[in-house]
Structure formats: structure tokens, C-alpha cells
Design a protein around this nucleic acid. Structure first.
Length: 602
DNA sequence: TTAGGGTTAG
């Protein structure tokens, strides 16, 4: 509707001076007038400021307000729209805004501003700009709030971060004073577009220009740098806050600890945990959940769980999820299930992620039946699986060699209206290839390429190239590899090259493998340990000691070493006298241990 | 009555 209709309004401002001067008495009359015709319940909801209102109730209230005569003022409508916008139901706000239009309820600058915000949050910038134009035509000058909303729209939009930066400059030129929200929005936008150094620079410029960054500003920057592994920078920012006498809170500390843990500085994280406590900042459920999720390999995770219970910090679904995931990763499935039962007994409702974690754990442990039982348990609770649930089960059945049930789950997924994604396709293709049904995979692959809109990624092609190579169809694989290079839509990665090189080696096409390796070094992805090991084994099997030695040298110089199968091959060749002991020493330091051991019979 | 936004799980 907005697409064809330009919203109209009366430019009159509602608050009249005489009305204000008459004070409370007149205000009371207005109050009565505003709510007459509404049921008592709704009057109460409006009076209480719409806190904790549910979406359905809000929409019903809108209907009542629209029907009641005389109608409540536009201010009441704007409060309601704002409450729905806070629930992030932007599409609902937009459609109610359209309804107001149809019912002849005139918008004002606040409702326009809310609508601009909603269109921006939905990345529908053109509509936001159209409303802005309409608003200005009616004589409303956009204020900093409206402009910040618009800025947020530019920041969230895929390609318009430069426009966002330009908008701020324009705002200043037009005499607007940017505020902390302006800067925070722009900083957040820069991070969304991975422009880390510009975001950090903006924080510094803020300080230079005399704007005091707030906890949100620091939090956003610290989070942005931590997620990208720059934990040193985060710790420096923490020091800077201290220097500015700004007290970091539990969120800032938790964010840095999470970053440290995820980037393998667990001890630093635990130090920071002590530092935080010594400053009297109490860890909360986020702090504990984050630490537990990072420390699942260690006993500390379970200890931390007990500690938080002792300190009366209530675990959430996410805390339990981290613990359950930890047990699953260690294949301690019974304990995972016990934890699941514990969380349910404590009244913490499992969500789809919890189920997916457990289902994944059982599938990985080749217990697909138990995984299916959990899946049925979900239905009994009135929950339905999402794309991840189905992907996990399909993969589980394929890994158990059960193509029929894998297909069955896929069919169920489609009939239940759960949208398959690229991962689903990759799992299906890989499953059929690995279960000796390349032909079936090829049919699906062709359909996907010709008849569907599904975006295939490099993993899809890697799966097919590997499938073809393993089935001995190296020429077909090579055609597919070359078609990738020709089309240029998806770029071959190191795995693509490794798979193809391995395919050539497997067919004894060593020259082709070498040629591809050279091509890779000139104009492709960086070779990794797998590339070298594949080639080294091929050359060793061919008895080409010189080339093998050369490759080993090159591999070691790049910081890689022989993998298990290369070491085992060399070990065997050493035993039957085809190789000299020095070869093994060349491969890796850990390989020397094998030299000391007696040769196996193989 | 309008805006931004920092922490946790598959």
C-alpha cells in the first residue's frame, strides 16, 4: 500500500497553548475523551504505558482504538506503534500505519518517524526516504532522532555504508548536532561492513572532538574487535576506559573474556574474571555461560556450573545448551541427556537449538535411532524441527549408510514446509556420493544447477568433484573443475585443488597433478599441509625419492609436516628397505618416535 | 509519543 500511496496528514500541531495553560483539568477531559468507547481492559493497558503488552493484544487494541468514537488521539496511536516496533515487529507496524491511512487517521511527525525507522530496519530505504520527503513537504523538519533512524537504515543496507558516512557529514553541514546515538549507529554500521579500523578510528575521533563515548560505544567497539580476534586491542580499550575514569561493567568484561577464550587465551580470561571480581563487579549468567561454553573440554566447565548455582545465578537455556554441547562433544551422551532432564525439571524449557545439539550428538555417535526418538519427542512437545534439525538427521542417516531413511527425512522436511538450504543440498549430494550412488547425486546436482534457484557454493562443487574422482571419473571431475574456472561464479578453493590433485594421483596421473600444483602456486589458493602430503605420497609410491625429498623440504619450510598416512607410508617403506631412515626424520619431529619402534608386519 | 546499542549455545 505504501508503495502506491503517499501518506497524508494535517500539518496542524495538536497541542494548543490554551490547552496547556488550562492545566490538569483540561488534561483530564482529554484523557476521558481519548479513551471513551474502549473496554476497561484496554484503557488499563493504555494507562500502564503498554509495558509487557503481547503482539496479539496490541493488534486487537489497535482495532478497538480505530473503532472507538471519538477516536483516541494520534499520540495514543504513536505509543501503540512504538510498543510494537520495540517488539521488532516492523512489518506489523507498517501495515497498521497503512490501515491508519485508509481509515483517515492523520499521521504526525512521531508516527512518521516510527514508520521511517521500521522501513529502515527492514532495509526498505526507498520507502523510508519517500516518507521523509512527504513529511518535509508537510512542514515537519526531521529531528536528530529521525535522521539517526535513517542513518541506521544506510548502515544496515548492504551497499550503502559510504552513504551513511556522507549522511553524517551532511547532517553537520545542515546544522544538526550529532549525538552519541549517531556515533554508535555509525560505529556499529562500520563493524557490520567489517571496516574495523575505521570503527576504531571513529571512536578516537569522537574523543578528540569532545564527544564522550558511553558504555555502549566502548561495548560495541570492544565486541567488534574481540569477535575478530584482536583481543589485545580490546584490553587496551579497557585500559583507556580506566584512564578516562569510566567504569567497565559486567558486559564489557564478559565480552573480552569470551573473546580471549575463543582465541585460545583461556588463562588470560580467567585472570580477567578474578580482576572483575576484585573490582566488585559480579559475574552474571552471561559471564558464566560464555566461560562454560569455552571450557567444555575441561573439568572447569562443570565446576563453573556448580559455582554459579552456589551463587544463586540461574542458568538459562543457553547455559544448559553449552553444557549439553560439551557432553556431546566428549561423547558423554548419557550425561548430556541427564543435563537435559535436569533443565526440564528446573522449568527451563528446551528450545530447538537444545534439541539440535542433542540430535547432533547422537547422530555423530552413530545412534540415529536415539536421535529420531528425540525428534519425535520434539513433536510430542508441540515443537517442529527447523532446517538444522533436518539437515542433522539426514546427515546422520547417510553416515549410518541408510540412504532410504535419509531421503525419507528430506521428504518430510519438504512436506512440512521447512526450507532446505545450501547445506541440505550439500548433505544430500555428499551422502549419495559417499554411499556409492554417484548417479543419483549427479541427477540432483543437474536439477539444482538447471531448475532451482538454490545458491550452490564451493563446497557443493568440491563434493561433486570428490565424488567423481572417487568413482574413477577423473575426466568428468576435471571438466567440472574447468567449468568452475570458466564461469567464475564460484572460485575454486584449496580444497577444490587438493581434491583434484588427489584425484589425478589416484589415477596415476602424476604429471597432471604436478601441473595443477604449479598452477596453484602461481595463480591459486595457498597450498596447505594436505596438498603437500597428497603429492608426497604419490611421488613416494612411484619411487621418486628426489621429488619427494624436495616436496618435504618445501613443506617443512612452510611450517607444515607429514600427516599420519604419509608417516605410516614412509614407515612401511622403511621397513621393507625401499627408503632410508633419514626420510622419516625429514618429515617431522614427532615422526622420530616411530623410528625407535620396531617395524610392523604390514 | 520517535532513534542507536555491547555479552552466551547447534
Amino acid at each position: 500500500m505504501w508503495r502506491v500511496m503517499v501518506i497524508s496528514s494535517t500539518p496542524k500541531r495538536f497541542v494548543h497553548r490554551s490547552l496547556v495553560q488550562r492545566g490538569n483539568f483540561y488534561g483530564f477531559r482529554c484523557w476521558i475523551r481519548a479513551f471513551s468507547g474502549l473496554s476497561d481492559d484496554y484503557r488499563e493497558i493504555l494507562r500502564s504505558g503498554l509495558r509487557d503488552i503481547k503482539l496479539d493484544d496490541a493488534v486487537d487494541l489497535f482495532g478497538e482504538m480505530a473503532k472507538s468514537r471519538p477516536r483516541p488521539s494520534i499520540i495514543e496511536f504513536s505509543k501503540l506503534l512504538s510498543a510494537i516496533a520495540k517488539m521488532k515487529k516492523f512489518d506489523v507496524v507498517i501495515s497498521l500505519g497503512e490501515k491508519m491511512q485508509m481509515l483517515g487517521i492523520a499521521h504526525n511527525d512521531y508516527t512518521y518517524s516510527i514508520l521511517i525507522n521500521c522501513f529502515c530496519r527492514r532495509s526498505e530505504l526507498s520507502f523510508a526516504l519517500a516518507i521523509l520527503g512527504k513529511m518535509m513537504k508537510l512542514g515537519y523538519k526531521p529531528d536528530i532522532v529521525t535522521l539517526n533512524s535513517l542513518l541506521n537504515g544506510f548502515c544496515r543496507h548492504g551497499k550503502r555504508i559510504s552513504d551513511a558516512v556522507a549522511l553524517v557529514d551532511q547532517m553537520v553541514e545542515m546544522g544538526y548536532q550529532p549525538n552519541t546515538v549517531t556515533f554508535n549507529t555509525l560505529i556499529h554500521g562500520l563493524f557490520l561492513h567489517n571496516r574495523v579500523s575505521e570503527a576504531v578510528a571513529l571512536l578516537e575521533r569522537m574523543v578528540v572532538k569532545g564527544y564522550q563515548p558511553d558504555l555502549i560505544t566502548y561495548g560495541a567497539v570492544i565486541n567488534g574487535v574481540c569477535k575478530r580476534g584482536h583481543t589485545d586491542l580490546a584490553l587496551n580499550l579497557l585500559k583507556k576506559m580506566e584512564a578516562e575514569r569510566m567504569e567497565a561493567d559486567v558486559v564489557i568484561y564478559s565480552t573480552i573474556m569470551d573473546g580471549l577464550c575463543k582465541h585460545k587465551h583461556v588463562n588470560d580470561a580467567l585472570d580477567l574474571f578474578s580482576e572483575m571480581e576484585s573490582k566488585g563487579i559480579r559475574p552474571d549468567v552471561y559471564t558464566y555461560s560464555s566461560l562454560i561454553s569455552c571450557l567444555w573440554k575441561l573439568l572447569e566447565a562443570e565446576e563453573l556450573y556448580e559455582e554459579m548455582i552456589r551463587r544463586s545465578i540461574d542458568p538459562t537455556t543457553i547455559t544448559y545448551g553449552s553444557l549439553i554441547n560439551g557432553f556431546c562433544l566428549q561423547d558423554r551422551l548419557e550425561e548430556a541427556k541427564q543435563m537435559f532432564a535436569l533443565m526440564v525439571s528446573k522449568g527451563c524449557l528446551p528450545d530447538v537449538v537444545i534439541y539440535n545439539t542433542l540430535i547432533n550428538g547422537f547422530c555423530k555417535s552413530k545412534r540415529v535411532d536415539d536421535a529420531m526418538e528425540l525428534f519425535h519427542g520434539m513433536s510430542r512437545r508441540g515443537m517442529s524441527g527447523d532446517t538444522v534439525t533436518h539437515n542433522t538427521l539426514i546427515k546422520g542417516f547417510f553416515q549410518a549408510g541408510d540412504c532410504e531413511n535419509a531421503q525419507q527425512v528430506f521428504k518430510q522436511m519438504v512436506s512440512a514446509g521447512v526450507p532446505p538450504d545450501t547445506m541440505t543440498c550439500n548433505i544430500l549430494l555428499d551422502g549419495f556420493c559417499k554411499n556409492g550412488r554417484l548417479e543419483k547425486a549427479l541427477v540432483i546436482f543437474q536439477d539444482l544447477q538447471q531448475k532451482s534457484e538454490m545458491a550452490l557454493n564451493i563446497v557443493t562443487y568440491n563434493i561433486m568433484i570428490e565424488g567423481m574422482c572417487k568413482a574413477g571419473k577423473v575426466e568428468d571431475a576435471w571438466d567440472l573443475f574447468n567449468s568452475l574456472c570458466l564461469k567464475g561464479v564460484v572460485k575454486p578453493d584449496v580444497v577444490t585443488y587438493n581434491t583434484m590433485i588427489s584425484g589425478f594421483c589416484g589415477k596415476g596421473l602424476k604429471q597432471e597433478a604436478d601441473a595443477l600444483f604449479r598452477e596453484m602456486k602461481e595463480d591459486g589458493p595457498l597450498p596447505n599441509d594436505c596438498t603437500y602430503n597428497t603429492l608426497i605420497r604419490a611421488h613416494l609410491r612411484d619411487g621418486d625419492k628426489d621429488s619427494s625429498a624436495e616436496l618435504i623440504k618445501e613443506m617443512r619450510s612452510r611450517g607444515f609436516c607429514g600427516d599420519a598416512s604419509t608417516i605410516s607410508l614412509v614407515g612401511n617403506m622403511l621397513c621393507d628397505g625401499r627408503l632410508h631412515k633419514s626420510f622419516l626424520e625429514m618429515l617431522s619431529s614427532s615422526a622420530r618416535e616411530i623410528v625407535e619402534q620396531p617395524c610392523s608386519d604390514q
